[in-house]
Design a binder for these strands. Structure first.
Length: 586
RNA sequence: CGGGGCGUAGCGCAGCUCGGUAGCGCGCUUGAAUGGGGUUCAAGAGGUCGGGCGUUCGAAUCGCCCCGCCCCGACCA
């Protein structure tokens, strides 16, 4: 590619509304342009990279038996109504009516479509297992897109769907993806960790997220350095402290004026926060018979811990959760700041953390302004509809596996794998006949990687003060050939020689000053730079420089192609050395 | 959806308080010089001042409404 014809322009200054380095550099270097909030065009430089990323995905998914296909971006709403997600998912689903007034959906993901295909195509256990995938555009109308290319509304994803006749088969395909995903990210030069995650709107049984650890990440991860336990904070668990054995003491009501927070209360009574119970009032939206119903939820955790919304949402099978208004709290007989499950109306759904159930003699509100109860005990003084883990893990808690101290870190989710099970096949009647001639729902898995987000993460990792520094395996070109005065004729020849040798070359043939060319080359970030000019020729050849290297090396003209091939091989080998088997946890 | 900020040429910005018919730097075009890290000089092209309504003799500037974009929060695979 000659730079004089490259569609795109480098900018000296980044647009004012860009925040992250990856976003700034990708715009400045001419890779992407923004059309609207969370909507981007990929210019030729970015398109070349996306193609390379997607080809890496193709190779790895093909290697575990995947067959590429393409499923549509626009779906009739009927299939989404069949699985219920038409009703469960809120405003992030793109909906419109076609010319005949039929409800239509913009693809957020493709479980419904693939399941529809499965019920039409798969009839026998003999056709299983199978693995299909596609690379397709999705639309998720995030209420708030942010972070440049990290969190967008329109994006392209590689998603694969595994189909099995038994659970062992699903487990096998799941593990195969687990390794394939590490291979993909490592081949892109990105270090990731796999963490246990919430299944969210996908439903299903088990899920891992692949996380690129970076401060710009929007997810908080819980990590154990001792045993390797990793989980998204949304689902992370920990070893709860054991409560001291105590005689249960009689319930006692005490005046505690002006102690609306746990900290105030503990200070007022001179007790640790761990001896208190914290009440949180929420209203859950629950789907009942395709209609949304609001249910009051009264959650209780120990005073020294925080509630985890995801865990609570899952515990009550809610579609959404919001804090309750004061009137709603009073309506159930509780008092904000002095709430407790003791003496609450019976039809209220009380969810308590399992640690609260085991902790004797806690201090809890008296549901009366300015009063608390001492020595509240589960079972004697109150009961709960649900007793389960609803506490958020904090830095310093004990690892659920080995007991060592946990730490937290931020991460960007670049991929995920889900064991869907029969969630979709059962709902849509995608069954096969087993050996006994009995109809069984197909057992499914779903596995996604967002290519644009992957590109942004690589940009976020590989840059310096001058611009981008792509890994050779994903770079838009392998060589950036800079022609300076007195070197244009040689450069032209070199350009065709390199291309003839199968090397991807970006050739800066523009009549620009050297400084402009070098700065653009650094900004664009092609891994190997060749410079030909009167000066280099006088010295006997062409200068070669790796983007990340400090020094130039002079190479005789006749050896340039071989030398470049050698450099490419070396850089590729460095990255491929990281592609190794990763043990599957558990 | 709540809070904050912004919208003037491709990009970065000034002008707005105090209304008088739009400017700077970069980029772009042409010419000349320069020629190894955003070089220099000269001459140019390019703007419905986000949109609508209103006030006014006159609106980028004042008022009202709307739209868009960014950040924080809520939310989210």
């Amino acid at each position: 590619m000659k730079m004089s014809h490259l569609f795109g322009q480098t900018l000296r200054e980044a647009p004012a509304d860009t925040e992250f380095v990856s976003h700034q550099l990708l715009v400045r270097a001419g890779y992407v342009r923004q059309l609207g909030a969370g909507i981007f065009s990929a210019l030729p430089l970015a398109r070349r990279m996306l193609t390379r990323l997607e080809n890496i995905m193709r190779e790895e998914i093909n290697a575990i038996g995947g067959q590429e296909m393409t499923m549509p971006v626009v779906h009739p709403a009927d299939i989404w109504k069949e699985t219920g997600r038409w009703y469960e998912i809120g405003s992030e689903m793109g909906r419109f009516k076609d010319a005949n007034g039929r409800d239509m959906v913009l693809a957020m993901t493709h479980e419904e479509v693939v399941t529809d295909l499965v019920r039409n195509v798969i009839h026998s256990y003999r056709q299983l297992p199978a693995l299909v995938y596609h690379i397709q555009t999705k639309w998720r109308d995030e209420v708030r897109s942010r972070g440049g290319l990290i969190r967008v509304r329109e994006f392209t994803m590689k998603d694969s769907y595994s189909l099995d006749s038994d659970w062992e088969g699903l487990d096998q395909q799941y593990r195969a993806h687990y390794q394939a995903y590490f291979n993909i990210f490592h081949r892109c030069g990105l270090d990731v960790i796999a963490v246990e995650s919430d299944v969210g709107m996908m439903g299903g049984k088990k899920a891992h997220e692949f996380m690129y650890l970076a401060p710009i990440g929007e997810d908080t991860l819980v990590l154990c350095d001792a045993c390797g336990y990793t989980a998204n904070r949304q689902v992370a668990t920990f070893q709860k402290p054991t409560s001291p054995a105590e005689e249960t003491l009689p319930l006692e009501k005490v005046a505690t004026p002006g102690t609306k927070t746990i900290a105030d209360l503990a200070a007022f009574l001179g007790i640790p926060e761990s001896k208190t119970a914290k009440a949180v009032f929420l209203v859950a939206t629950v789907s009942e018979d395709q209609a949304d119903v609001e249910k009051f939820v009264f959650a209780v955790v120990r005073g020294d811990m925080d509630m985890n919304e995801t865990k609570l949402t899952n515990a009550v099978k809610a579609k959404a959760l919001r804090p309750a208004h004061e009137e709603e709290i009073r309506a159930i007989g509780a008092s904000p700041g002095y709430g407790s499950p003791v003496g609450i109306k019976e039809d209220v759904l009380i969810v308590i953390d399992d640690l609260v159930a085991q902790s004797p003699n806690l201090v809890a509100g008296a549901n009366e302004d300015g009063y608390h109860y001492l020595n509240v005990n589960y079972g004697r003084d109150f009961t709960a509809g649900i007793v389960t883990d609803i506490v958020a893990v904090e830095e310093g808690h004990a690892c659920p596996e080995c007991g060592a101290t946990l730490r937290t870190s931020r991460g960007v989710e670049v991929g995920n794998i889900f064991k869907l099970g029969t969630r979709y096949s059962a709902a849509m009647g995608a069954t096969f006949l087993d050996k006994n001639g009995k109809a069984q729902p197909v057992i499914m898995g779903s596995y996604g990687i967002g290519s644009g987000r992957l590109l942004a993460c690589i940009a976020e990792k590989y840059n310096d003060n001058y611009g981008l520094c792509w890994p050779i395996t994903v770079a838009p070109f392998q060589v950036h050939l800079v022609a300076l005065r007195g070197g244009f004729e040689v450069a032209e020849q070199l350009y065709s020689d390199l291309q003839a040798a199968g090397i991807e070359v970006l050739y800066d043939n523009r009549n620009e000053s050297p400084g402009v060319k070098f700065n653009d080359a650094d900004l664009i970030g092609v891994p190997i730079r060749l410079t030909v000019g009167g000066r280099s020729l006088k010295k006997g050849g062409v200068e070669i420089k790796a983007r990340t290297a400090k020094d130039l090396t002079l190479v005789p003209l006749a050896e340039v192609v071989a030398r470049v091939q050698n450099e490419i091989a070396t850089q590729e080998a460095t990255i491929m050395a990281k592609v190794t088997p990763t043990p599957y946890p558990g």
